[in-house]
Amino acid sequence: MARMFGCPCCQPGADLPEGFVPDHPVARRGVMIAALAGLGASVAGPVLAQGATRSLRVRRQVTGDSFSGVYFRNGRYDRPALRQLDYVFRDLSKAETTPMDPRLFDVMSTVANRMDSDEHYEVISGYRTPETNAQNASRSRRVSQVSLHMSGMAADCRLPDRNSREMARLAAELRLGGVGLYTSNGFVHLDCGPVRRW
């Protein structure tokens, strides 16, 4: 069941994050999210060199939790690094962590590299439980009922040393997944789902 998301960690022989089991909530998300993820699975791959080392610098805006380092090397995702990233991207209101889709980190890493930024991403929102997402959707029409945040495939973030509008433009041009610009809040939504823009 977990493989329906096309997650590179879930392929046979992959180095799975500790604690990941197919019955985990990330594997039980709705059919619509699975379909969206499947469409996006073929998008991010061609842009990234398969054997390249990939790194990311992120800091959670509210808590200050951070990660700075390599999360992919020698053709494999690094389990301890993914666990640290899962923690940084956790749902803060429910204090719940889920295995994030590492393709999201690939998207973020690619965007930061193309923007020539060495700054930490400020992460406003990462994983959201269905309950948290429903609460957010009840407060704002801009929150999707089937948000990819619920499957660990999306982040709302900004690069402090770069213009958010330029970041959204570049991310959309790269066609790695979904891109949403929230000018009033100064952040960009990035995900590893199907290519779309708002």
Rank of each mutant, 00 (worst) to 15 (best):
E18A: 05
N74G: 04
A34L: 15
L159E: 07
Y71N: 02
S184I: 03
V70I: 13
D101G: 00
R142V: 06
P12D: 12
F5H: 06
Y71P: 01
Y71S: 02
R197W: 13
P12Q: 13
V26F: 07
M153I: 03
N163G: 04
T129D: 04
M167S: 02
N74K: 09
G38N: 00
R197M: 08
R54Q: 05
P194D: 04
P46D: 14
S184V: 05
G19C: 06
L181A: 02
C7Q: 05
G13V: 11
Y182G: 02
S55Q: 14
T132Y: 07
L190C: 11
S55K: 14
V143M: 07
V146G: 09
A41Q: 11
A35I: 03
T53R: 09
G69P: 01
N163K: 12
G152E: 07
S117P: 00
P25Q: 02
P8E: 02
V146R: 06
T110G: 11
E166W: 08
T129V: 00
D78M: 12
G38A: 13
R142Q: 13
D91H: 11
Y77D: 05
A95G: 09
L36W: 09
N163S: 14
W198I: 13
D65P: 07
R196L: 04
A2K: 02
D191S: 06
E131L: 12
L159D: 04
A95I: 10
D15V: 14
C10Q: 01
C9H: 00
R76C: 02
V188P: 00
S184G: 02
G152H: 04
Y87L: 03
L39F: 02
V107F: 07
L92N: 14
A137K: 03
F20E: 03
A2G: 11
G64W: 10
K94Y: 02
P8Q: 05
V107C: 14
S93V: 15
N74D: 08
N163I: 06
M32L: 15
S138H: 12
C10A: 07
L181W: 10
G69Q: 06
D116E: 12
F72E: 00
G40H: 04
G13P: 14
H189Y: 15
G64C: 10
R79D: 12
F105M: 06
R103Q: 13
R28A: 13
C157N: 10
A14N: 05
C192D: 03
S66Q: 09
A171R: 10
P22I: 08
V31R: 11
L82R: 13
R76N: 04
D86I: 12
L82H: 12
T53S: 10
V123N: 08
R83Q: 15
E131R: 12
A155M: 15
V43E: 04
R60A: 15
R28E: 10
R83K: 15
G193I: 03
P8D: 01
